[in-house]
Every structure is written in C-alpha cells, then in structure tokens.
Amino acid sequence: MTKLTFIMFITVSSYGQNKNEVSDGKKSTLELIQGHWMHDKDSLTSIQINNYQWSFNYEEHKIDSEDNYEITITNRLPEFVKDDVKTEFIILKSKTDTLHYEILGITDTTLSLLFYPAGRLHLYRRQNKK
C-alpha cells in the first residue's frame, strides 16, 4: 500500500485582504484610501487622507505642517523590493522626508501597510466623521 502526503501552502494576511481582492476595478487605490484612519495599536494616532494629501495626526490635531505628505502610488519600489513583485506601494513626500509603504490590504474598514525599510506593520481602522 502506497501512502500519499499532500502539502498545501496558503498565504493569509491578518492585516487585510489579499492584494488581488482590494478592488473590483471600479475604484482606484487612491479612492479606496480616502478618509480618516485610526491606528489599531495607538488610539491617539491617526491619518487623514484627502485627495493626494496625507496628514499624520496625534490626538485629532495635526502635529506640524511638516507632517503633511504628497501621495504617490506605484507598483515598483526598487530600493526595497524586487521588480517582479506584483503589489502596490505608497510613497509619501514632504518638504523634509520621504516614507515608503507596501499596501498589504484595503477594505472598507481596514488599511494595512508595511513600512520600509524597518518592516513594521501598521494597521488602521476607518473612522466615521461625526
């Protein structure tokens, strides 16, 4: 009697949807990330995304005008990721700084990002404005 063994590999992200399920083709990534997002681990930290502007906030107040960034969405980030990786990245540029994130997943309620080069995961929950 021959014994067969099957091995199955499944990739699951606890920080959001699979990147291929992010959009149904009707909304762009930029449209999907619009809004007010609260950090999952630090309730005093949030981000506000309005068109091509990204603002970091602390306790619902902007920290400084230096915390306003212009958003670029790209499918390449050669400084940190091989060109053959199929995903989207967010590049944030301010007057004094440039930040790089990989988009791990976007849903109506969740935005998960991987910060480069540190490799830190950031999970945000969408907040409804009152």
Rank of each mutant, 00 (worst) to 15 (best):
H39E: 07
S13L: 10
V12C: 12
K86E: 08
K19H: 06
K26V: 07
Y15F: 10
N57M: 13
N50M: 09
H61K: 14
I49N: 09
G35D: 02
S23G: 07
P78Q: 07
N51E: 09
N51Q: 11
N68Y: 03
K19M: 07
K86P: 00
Y69H: 06
N51F: 10
D24Y: 02
T72N: 15
S23R: 02
G35S: 01
W37E: 12
V81T: 14
K27D: 05
D83I: 03
H36W: 07
S13D: 12
G35R: 01
K82L: 12
N51M: 11
K62R: 07
T72K: 13
D64T: 12
N51H: 11
S65I: 01
W54F: 14
H36F: 01
T74M: 04
N75E: 15
I10Q: 06
E79L: 08
L32N: 05
G35F: 03
G25E: 03
S23D: 12
Y52E: 06
T72M: 15
S43R: 05
K41I: 10
N57I: 08
F56Y: 11
N68L: 15
G35C: 02
I71Y: 00
V22R: 08
Q48Y: 11
S23A: 05
E31C: 00
D64L: 06
I73A: 13
D67M: 11
E31I: 04
V85A: 02
Q17C: 00
K41M: 04
G25T: 10
D83N: 15
E70S: 14
D67Y: 12
D64R: 12
N18D: 08
S65V: 08
D40H: 10
T74E: 07
N57T: 10
D67E: 11
